[in-house]
Design a protein around this nucleic acid. Sequence first.
DNA 1: TATTGTTATACTCTATAACTATA
DNA 2: TATAGTTATAGAGTATAACAATA
Lengths: 145, 145
Amino acid sequence: MPDLTQGEDAAAVSALRSAVMRLSRRLKHQRVDESLSPTEMSVLGTLARCGTATPGELARKEHVQPPSMTRIVALLEAKGLVRLEPHPEDRRQKVVMQTERAEAMLDESRRRRNAWLAELVKGLDEEEWAKLRDAAPVLEKLAHL
Amino acid sequence: MPDLTQGEDAAAVSALRSAVMRLSRRLKHQRVDESLSPTEMSVLGTLARCGTATPGELARKEHVQPPSMTRIVALLEAKGLVRLEPHPEDRRQKVVMQTERAEAMLDESRRRRNAWLAELVKGLDEEEWAKLRDAAPVLEKLAHL
DNA sequence: TATTGTTATACTCTATAACTATA
DNA sequence: TATAGTTATAGAGTATAACAATA
């Protein structure tokens, strides 16, 4: 493992942090549905990948506290985007799963986000975009560690 | 420019968005000083790069509204991290600049952030980290577009 | 006794609208 | 009349603490 406190590794860390913070702030303004927060979107994305999850699992994956996830899941349920069922083995837990409506919304969301990012990416050249595209899965892995 | 609505470009966009949101949430918990928010940190970083700036310039660079920047600058001033001076040519404006204390804090901050990210990056292999390091400046450029 | 999830409450950050001072 | 910055206020999202139900 490289020494992350030296030279260009340190510069990369610094650039990464400030860029992530600025981008996250701007992404908030690019909501598909005005009534859907970034974390709600992220939960739907997680459910699309994982199928089902308990509220506790979702809280851990999204790095929010359990009470926050309770609220998020309740909001998503009220919007008809997730369904809650009793856990088959443990009556304390619940199982959260996405609805067809959520799936349709994710498709629409993807189209709109791409349109927004495509505009932004016009300021990059091919080589820069290639670097970013290569790094995207790594960034995602990092966010899940 | 590639078609960002198709194939692996679309996947990169999606991965990028969700990773940025998750990481930004986790970064909030890795504050150097508990009393310093991510945006306050980012403003100090900007001042370190640009030297001086007016509140309006900072608001535009950080993508927050002017009243939010007023508050942020006031908090930083109260903590002795920035100094405010009258604008030499326009008496409506002010000039914001960092103090020595801010500079020292940024050094300390860099050390701690690196330590935290180094821990996280242990879950990546050399090749993955190389990709991320290459992309970091691009991500930063994107955030400034 | 430990764990899952919820309820109640408070805090942080940001935004919008209205205002002041200067250009 | 337009612009830079501020004040006042409200809203969104999250956290902590205390609680209920189940393991």
